[in-house]
Amino acid sequence: MKPLLEVKNLKKYFSTPAGQLHAVDDVTFNILPGETLGVVGESGCGKSTLGRVILNLLPATDGEIYFEDEPIVGVKRDKLMQLRRNIQIIFQDPFSSLDPRMTVSELISEPLETFKIYKSKSERIKKVESLMDTVGLAARLYNTYPHELDGGRRQRIGIARALALDPKFIVCDEPVSALDVSIQAQILNLMQDIQAEKGLTYIFITHNLSVVKHISNDILVMYLGKMMEKSEAEDLFNNTLHPYSKALLSAIPDPSIDNRRKRILLKGELTSPINPKPGCRFAVRCPYAKQQCFEVEPELEEVLPKHFVACHLTREINQL
């Protein structure tokens, strides 16, 4: 099957007074239609920047992105508008991503008006009503304002807005992080149902590994702008190869008191992504790091079928 989205050697650097901030550095992946790629990492690893560069909300510094074989990087404005009909985004914070002065129906019909999808107002209203039904918003909320609603319902508005143009691909940037667990589960189920029904493709950006495992086919682990490991979701959890992924997995507090996992505690904190030193970005915190790791940057390598790792010592650590 042909991939829906191809990202090749994508780079996004920001110029800061202190130097070049390497937010996304040489990221490469494909997503097949109907699948979900989970992107995980801690704050500052570049996962949100990656999402925004894919949408061309931020221009890429270098590299290529193809959506259905059409390039996204450096595309002209009218072409970009067309692309955006097919690529949408759901934002993290349903409290700040909705205009407080617009009603639910105005918010959801805004994309329809921007793209002049329907000629008559009645058709547009019908579409808004059907979108509200799809995302589980009661019809009586049609004229309410976001501040009258709880976080879960607001996030449903965000999802309805993203779905309004019948896109093929949605960038989900931490869509459930601001929600309580019982509401989070409702939204995750909704997103899975919509995906199955409409054959959508997702890139699901989050810091929550349990959520990403639940929803993804493939998972990409990022650290300071770099890809550390990428594999099928099950494989990443059952056969974790990269030392950072191992530590990240073991750090999740497990809501169970049986068979407690042994925790790998990382030393120190994230180093600065501004003018990063040569070598592996994770080396300073890595329990296995050797001289080589501080000097040569490891390449992403297919260590096992469909399982990519960027680490000099993968084979040694995992006895492959």
Binding site: D150, G152, R153, V181, S182, I183, Q184, A185, Q186, L188, N189, Q192, L209, S210, V211, K213, H214, I215, E234, F237, L249, I252, D254, P255, S256
Partner: peptide, 18 residues
């Protein structure tokens, strides 16, 4: 409602309502 690392479920069982 919690997605779990150790158990594979296809659908979560959220608490309905708010």
């Amino acid at each position: 409602s919690l997605p779990r690392l150790d158990i594979m479920v296809n659908r979560l069982n959220p608490i309905p309502g708010i």
